[in-house]
Structures are given as structure tokens and as C-alpha cells.
Design a protein around this nucleic acid. Structure first.
Lengths: 356, 356
DNA sequence: CTGAAAGCGCTTACAG
DNA sequence: CTGAAAGCGCTTACAG
């Protein structure tokens, strides 16, 4: 790739590139085009002669040129930053989602900016708005549970900020949704317990205000019903997705003389609560009690016996949600087909047939 | 705070502010000063008359003005972004550190950009350099274990990027260090076990290439020695900071007929491995075996019996490390006094006197 | 298909 | 203590 030093009658001086980062002007001079043409190449405009484009690209590559994101941000009135907005899910969930988003934006020139917030505080939507407008974000990923807040989505649409939402069911246009189908995962857990022979099964759910909790509960209850098992309301306890609330719910379910032979919990934290109550009461898992969690957090394999749990492909979810933001408006449709991810049950050592 | 509409003989037209975000020009016009003076107020220059400053600030407040970070970034050749560079510690650690950093930059106009990397891959330092230069980062926080890599720090110094390092011991100038004193935390664990009456104690360490592992080991061994207990080399097993490696190490230590009465592990993951082996072998915790972990991860309280563990104030560490980057060069000294954080033992249910 | 001019919203020299 | 000019590195709008 020789530099065509002698091709054009450009004075030597004009070819002298200072020893600092190259700018669009340097590239233009070296490629014997105007900066506007370089800009066109940068922005993939079709209005460039193939030969010209190649020459410009060669120079860019030779000098390892990347455009200044701040100059572009100023001119475009839009940055090359993707925001991730979330409200306190578990740490592993956040981190996996971040890895997924970073997978998607790697080598794209975009970067990831994080914005945790408290969706119960009154000013949180304003906080997100300031964040988005101040940083001129290219787009934001909405993670459960803020993804379920229609007022937030409305605000973003209002200010013209693109976004993608990750949720257990569709809440928006397909091009903005990553649907996780939690219902199917819960159904798989139900089928598995039924197939092992369990009939007296209990359920510890997350807070009913969470869409995911609702979906997981419905998926589990419906799948059991389909196999002829009706859960009495005494076998369904609502808890708060926390370890402590799981402990309290388990105490309720395991204290009576009529114990269920299996418990499904809306997440792994609450399953750990069930473990605590069972171990402390001398109820052995899985011999006397089968347990299934949801999330497949690291906790699941750390517990003993290792907890069977429904895994959500969180990293994939993050990758897809970020990709949706990068697509040009028109290309979003192409992604929709893959924008639906499926949970599946990871079987470990916490279940066996009931001891009747 | 009435707008002094009639004070200066400015034509009405000049006071008409379009209905878009205010710029420095709008503020200048409204405050009857030049944009340069507004810029001075923005940058806290002392070269502004007190009265002028107050007038400008009032206008800024009235119109909720915040400067455009991209325009500033372009002119300053430096952004208002803080980078966090890390190499795969546990999720909770990362998330807590992020919360701490966000605590520090809240309302400062800065934002946090995350950059996980793989310090074993050959090009990782180059990757960080591109990240820093491309985004013109204001500074980066180096989290263990990348914080221990002198080559990384040298590269950053080389390109003139400010940074702060979080590590168990001092590795750099005081103004760039948050020192976590892991040694003291491990010593506290040793003292506690000794005070309970344990004499035959074992240690599962992290990889010797990690500075934190070295410090935790040294702190534990030295504190025991100071109390007259020498650990034979057979009681010290090096593992990999992972659950699985903890299982393997525990199998080694718990298989013989001469079992130690207590085990201290370099992190909670490995302590969970000890739990697994003990539970599966019918060794009851804490009756037959006391265990102490390090990190106080969420896992610690989820295990049963709840694991005593040494807590590092990770969020504080993140807050301090980010604050150091925000200080003007001169002000860094003021922070040094507080830039040293102390671990402490959280006592739960995993230890009791040995059953001799 | 290509380019010269003006502008994005700030700052750094340089004057006064 | 304050300001007019030029510039940061890109893009948009307009010509050709």
C-alpha cells in the first residue's frame, strides 16, 4: 500500500503531517480529496466513487484514523454513547447484561454508559431525561424492571431518544423489544416436577407488581393445570424476590404437618431462603424436598446440593438489546426475528421423585 | 429573581431566546456579558467580578443551563467521562464499585464508562489506550487486578491520562492510590479464630500472582505467628479464587484423618467450596469445622450456616477512587488522608470453639 | 459524484 | 476584570 507521494502536484509542505492524531483534514490532504468526501466515506454515503472510497479508506487504515467522537457529537447533535438504565436487579444480572451490550458495540466506536436509578423515587424519569439529553445519547437500553415502566418509554419517545426494552412479554413495537418468555421457563420447571412424580407442589412468587413475577407464576400454574394439577391458593405465597422474603415464605410452607414435596421459586435468592429453612429444620434436599429456582445465578451452583434453576440468556439479551440501538432505523426489522430469547431449565441436584 | 428585562438598552430581538436548549451565547446575551465571561464562570475562574459572577449564575439557574459536554470536549481536548477498567472480579464487586463511582460523580456533569478487559490477552493494554484516547477520558479507575499491572499504569502516565489505582498495598504515588489493607482484614480473621481456641487451622489462598492473595495470606499467617501458632505448609493450599478450586482444596484438607478445626479462605467463592465438601462429607459447620471467608459477598449470608467473612468497603473504595480523578491536581493531597480503607470481619454463624 | 462555506457550542490565546 | 477573534474536528445545506 505505497503512499502515492508523487501522483499529484501537491507541494511537499502540504503532505507534512504533524505528529499528533490525524484529523479529517489530514486524511483529506493525503487522499487528495476534500474533507467532505472523507466525511462521506466515514458515514457510508453511497455518493462516493468506488475508487475514491477505496483510496480514502486505504489512507485511513494506514494512519489508523478514527474520527473524533466529540467533533461528530457536536455536529451531529448526537453522541456515540449507549446508555444502560436499570433499577437494582442482582449484580450478576447487571454485569452479564453489560458484557452482552459490550459484545454488541465492540469495534463500533460506541461506548457504554451506565445509569442505575431508583424507580420508586419520584424524580427518576427526570433523572433519565437529563442523562439522555445531557449526553445526547444515541440510545438507551431499558432493563427490567424500568423496562416495564410505560411512562419512562413515553418520555423517551417524546424527546426522540431511541430505546430498546427487555421484558418478559411484548410491551412495545417489535423493533424495540427483547422478549424473554419467562413463562416458558417456568412451564419447563413445572413439567419437570410433574414428570418426577410431584403432585403437592408449592410456589413462591416475586412481587405481583413485577411483570416477570406475574409471567413466571402464570407459566408455572398453567403448565401444571395442563397436566391436571391445580395449585390451591395456600400453596402460592407472594414474596419480594429477596433472600429474606424467601425465608419467610418457606417458613410458612414448611411449618405445617402437610408439607409440599416440591417448591418452585420466582428467583434463586428466594430458593436460597428455602434452603436455609429446610437445612435448619432438618428437611433434606432433595430427599424430602425438591427445589427449583429461576435465574441460574452463580448462587445456584454454590448452594449444596446444587440448585436446579431456569436460566435466562442474559448476556445474549444485552447483546441483542444493544444491537437494536445500533441498527439504522430500516435495518431494525432484520433483527426482530432473533429478538426473542428462550429460557431453559438447568438440571442440577436439587430435585428427585417425592418420597411417598 | 426577576429578569432584568429593562436594565440594558438591548433590542427586544436580542433577548428573544429560541425554544431549544440554551447555549453559552444565550446565557451571555441574557446576562449582558460576553460568552467568554460565561465560560469563566463555568470554569470557576477567579478572574470574574463577584457581582458579574452572581448575575451570570442566576441566569444559568433560571434557564437550567448546562454546558454541552461535546463542545467542551472538543475545545478542551478532554471529555467529561470517567473510565472504569477491570478484569473480571466478581459481579457484586464490580457493581458495588460502580455504585461508589457514581456516588462520587453525581451532579458533577461526569459520567461513567465501563471497560472490562482480559489482562491475560496480549493486546489488552493497547485496548485500554485506544479506549482512553478515543474517548479522551478525563481519567480512569483501575480496579484489581489490572490495578496491579505496572505496565498499564506506565502506559497511562505516558499518554498523560490521570488514573487512580485500588490495591491492597501502595503501588504508586499516594494521590493515585486507594489502599485496602487486606492484610489487616486477614489478621482480624486469624485473631478471631485463635480467640475461639482454634490451634489447628488451615488456609486456602488465592493465586500467588494476585497481590491481594499474597496480602491476605501474609496477614493471616503473621497474625497467627504473633499469637504463637505456626501454620505448617501442609495446612496452606493455593487455589484459584474460584468455587471449583475451593472444592478441590477442601477435599485435600478434609480427607485425611487429621482435619483442621478451622479454615480461612482467601475469598467467599472458595469458602462455598469448603461448605460443599463439608456438607457432602457429613462434617457439620460450625460444630466440627469453623470457616471464614473474605469479601462478604451476597453469597456469604445466603449459605447456611451464614458465613463469617471479611468485608471490604467496596462502594467506598469506588467513591474515593473516582473522587481522586475529579480533584484538581492540587486538591488531590486533601483526599489522601481518607484514601485508605479498612476491612473488617463480619461475624455470622460459621465459627465456634473447636470440639476437642 | 465532489467541494467551499458556514456552523455545532465551547475554549485558548491575545489584547486591553 | 472583560471581550473579539480564531479554532477544536466534524457535519449540514447548498452548489455544481
Amino acid at each position: 500500500m505505497p503512499r502515492k507521494k508523487t501522483e499529484a502536484p501537491v507541494p511537499a509542505q502540504a503532505r507534512t503531517i504533524p505528529d499528533r492524531a490525524k484529523t479529517i483534514n489530514d486524511i483529506a490532504r493525503l487522499a487528495d480529496v476534500s474533507k467532505k468526501t472523507v466525511s462521506r466515506v466515514l458515514n457510508q454515503s453511497p455518493l462516493v466513487h468506488q475508487e475514491t472510497r477505496e483510496r480514502v479508506e486505504a489512507v485511513m487504515r494506514e494512519f489508523n484514523y478514527t474520527p473524533d467522537p466529540f467533533a461528530r457529537g457536536l455536529a451531529f447533535r448526537r453522541s456515540f454513547l449507549i446508555g444502560m438504565v436499570y433499577d437494582n436487579p442482582t449484580a450478576q444480572y447487571i454485569v452479564n447484561m453489560q458484557y452482552g451490550a459490550l459484545d454488541a458495540i465492540r469495534d463500533s466506536g460506541f461506548e457504554l454508559v451506565v445509569h442505575p436509578c431508583d424507580s420508586r423515587s419520584p424524580g427518576y424519569i427526570d433523572g433519565v431525561r437529563r442523562f439522555v439529553q445531557q449526553q445526547k445519547l444515541h440510545g438507551v437500553m431499558l432493563v427490567p424492571r424500568v423496562s416495564e415502566d410505560q411512562a419512562l418509554a413515553d418520555m423517551l419517545a417524546d424527546i426522540g431518544c431511541r430505546y430498546s426494552r427487555i421484558a418478559s412479554v411484548s410491551l412495545d413495537e417489535a423493533s424495540r423489544m427483547v422478549i424473554t418468555h419467562d413463562r416458558d421457563g417456568a412451564a419447563e420447571a413445572a413439567d419437570y416436577l410433574q414428570s418426577l412424580g410431584h403432585r403437592d407442589i408449592a410456589l413462591i412468587t416475586g412481587p405481583s407488581s413485577y411483570r416477570s413475577a406475574h409471567e413466571r407464576t402464570a407459566g408455572f400454574v398453567d403448565a401444571l393445570a395442563k397436566r391436571g394439577i391445580e395449585l390451591p391458593s395456600t400453596r402460592i405465597v407472594e414474596a419480594g424476590y429477596t433472600f429474606e422474603s424467601g425465608v419467610a415464605a418457606a417458613e410458612l410452607l414448611l411449618s405445617g404437618s402437610q408439607r409440599p414435596s416440591a417448591i418452585f421459586t420466582g428467583n434463586d435468592e428466594m430458593a436460597a431462603g428455602v434452603y436455609k429453612v429446610a437445612l435448619r429444620s432438618g428437611i433434606s434436599i432433595p430427599q424430602q424436598l425438591s427445589v427449583i429456582g429461576f435465574d441460574d445465578s452463580p448462587l445456584a451452583s454454590r448452594l449444596w446440593p446444587a440448585l436446579s434453576s431456569v436460566r435466562l440468556p442474559v448476556r445474549d439479551m444485552g447483546r441483542i438489546a444493544a444491537s437494536m440501538l445500533l441498527q439504522p432505523e430500516s435495518g431494525a426489522a432484520a433483527l426482530v426475528a432473533s429478538a426473542s430469547v428462550r429460557p431453559h431449565l438447568i438440571v442440577r441436584d436439587s430435585c428427585q421423585p417425592p418420597a411417598y
